[in-house]
Amino acid sequence: MTLFSEINNCYYQIVYDLITHTSPLTREDIANTINTLGYEESILYLLPKLIEDSDTSWNLFTMEDTVYQPKVHAALTIPLSELQKSWLKALLLDSRIRLFLSEEQLHLLEGHLKECEPLFYPQDFYYYDAFTDGDSFEHPAYRENFRILLSAIKKQQYVNLSFQSHHNHRIHHWFLPCKLEYSIKNNRFRLLALEVRKHSRYRFFTINLSRITEIIPLEQYAKYTPDINRYIKRGYHKEPVTLLIRNERNALERTMLQFANYEKNTTRIGENLYQCEIYYNKSNETELLIEVLSFGPMVKVIGNAGFLKQLRERLKRQKEMEGNFID
């Protein structure tokens, strides 16, 4: 079993998409599919292979007038590879799988995959610094809420939702559920939703699933899918955090890896000295602040002003308490 196999190749996927079309294709249809599913330069190689009548073409289409008819039948299905089956088998052992599948469905899949070894077991991976207060995925009410929200997201259906805020206030409002976000570190799901306000305006909300107390789906549906990223990006700080990194104690590699899940821009500004700009959501500011603090003096914040102010305040408070380190 190997991961890097031609059967997963993007070109195979493009061809599969084309030959399973139920109607004949024009040259333009073929070119459009290549440009949509392929890489930037794929068309230069693929188009001649698919439509030219030459010794090196792939003989997958017959040309009739100006259209191309696939030679294979449109209902062609690709069998599952051993790797795909064993990965699916591994998923059936995961604690979150019952959020998606009923017991009967799980039983059906287990039966079909009984000859197959799981690719991995949950205990093969030890998340040594994950938080220990993750969500209770096995709780029936949690599962039901998860399924209602997933269904509402797919149907673009509004819901009447009640939840307990971080400050223990009970909030009850109409929302349009947009995405379910899973945090690996927290081992919990959050709902990314838009609160319905006056004059068809929306306000972005993030709600922990474990804090939701009631969901009532409404018989009302959004006409289009709002661009959730537009709302999320409104929460981004205009100015990035700018760090100066002196590459001592392997600080450069450590910071680059740790901040790899943020959009960032790093430049070398001198010997062993680097500047890194990190773009972040205001709601994650405290998390980023303590991440930066964890690097100690290897990293210096030079902006933005608000972030720098918070960091200095923490250090000031610390200095007032210091002098008590005992061996």
Binding site: F4, E6, I7, N8, N9, C10, V15, T56, V72
Partner: peptide, 19 residues
């Protein structure tokens, strides 16, 4: 991961055989 090279015969055989 989806960039593994292949020959003309590889891709033809893939679809011919599975068809």
């Amino acid at each position: 991961w989806k960039t593994k090279s292949f020959t003309d015969n590889d891709i033809m055989l893939h679809f011919f055989l599975l068809d």
